[in-house]
Design a protein around this nucleic acid. Structure first.
Lengths: 112, 112
DNA sequence: CTGTATCCGTTTCGATACTG
DNA sequence: CAGTATCGAAACGGATACAG
C-alpha cells in the first residue's frame, strides 16, 4: 500500500508537526466545520459541540499561524469576527474528507 | 464542501470515538506503518520512530479491540508476535492516505 | 523477544471569572 | 460578542524495571 512515504514515521520529519496540528483533539472538527463556509466565533463554538472557549481559541490560533485559517475582525460594537479557510486550509479539509467519512460510516461497527 | 455530514460535530456521535482513536498521537503512524504489511512487535517499535513501549502497546490494544488490527502470536521460544491490518484496518489506512500526503507535501510550507 | 507494571513529570483540558 | 486569565483535575506519555 506504501502509505508512509518519505518518512512520516521519522521523528524529526516536519510532517509530524503538521499531522499533530491537524489531528489534534479539536483540529479535525474545527476544520470540517469551517469547510462548510465562513463562521463567526460564536457560531463556531455552537457548531463544534462540546469544545471549550479555551480550546477553540487555541485551535484557531494554531491554524491561523499555520496559514490554514483566515481571521477577519470587524471594528464594530459589538465586535464581530469571522473565520474562514484559506486555500491551503481547503486543501487540508479535503484531505480530511475520507477520514471523516470512514469514521461516520463505521462508527457503529467499531464502537457498538 | 459539506464535509461534516451526519453529525461528526455532535458530541454524542459514536464517530467521535473512532476519530479519537485514529487521530491519537500514535494512531496514524502505527496504522500507516502496518499499511506496508505485517510487522513484528520489535519491527513496529523501530519503524515508528520515537514511540515508547507503553504507547505502542496501548495503541495496538485499542486498534485490536476496534477490529482494525489483527494480532497473531506464535507459541515459540523466543516468542514471536505479528501484527497486521484487518480488512477494516486497510480501509482506515486508505482513508488516512490523503491526510498523510497533505502533511508531507505541505510540511515545509506550514512549519518552515 | 514480547510484553506488563510502576513511578512520576508534563501536558491537556474544562470550568469559572473577568475584560474590552 | 469575542475573547483572555487562572486554577485544578485528569489524562497523557516516557523511563525504567521487571516477567514469561
Amino acid at each position: 500500500m506504501r502509505l508512509a512515504q518519505d518518512g512520516v514515521l521519522t521523528s524529526n520529519c516536519p510532517s509530524r508537526v503538521v499531522l499533530d496540528h491537524l489531528t489534534s483533539k479539536w483540529g479535525v472538527l474545527v476544520l470540517s466545520a469551517l469547510a462548510d463556509g465562513t463562521l463567526r466565533w460564536g457560531e463556531l463554538r455552537r457548531e463544534v459541540d462540546g469544545i471549550s472557549e479555551k480550546m477553540l481559541a487555541a485551535t484557531l490560533r494554531t491554524f491561523e499561524a499555520d496559514g490554514l485559517v483566515h481571521r477577519e475582525a470587524y471594528p464594530e460594537i459589538p465586535p464581530r469576527v469571522e473565520y474562514s479557510l484559506t486555500a491551503l486550509g481547503r486543501e487540508a479539509a479535503e484531505a480530511l474528507g475520507p477520514l471523516l467519512r470512514f469514521a461516520v460510516e463505521h462508527a457503529e461497527e467499531i464502537v457498538g
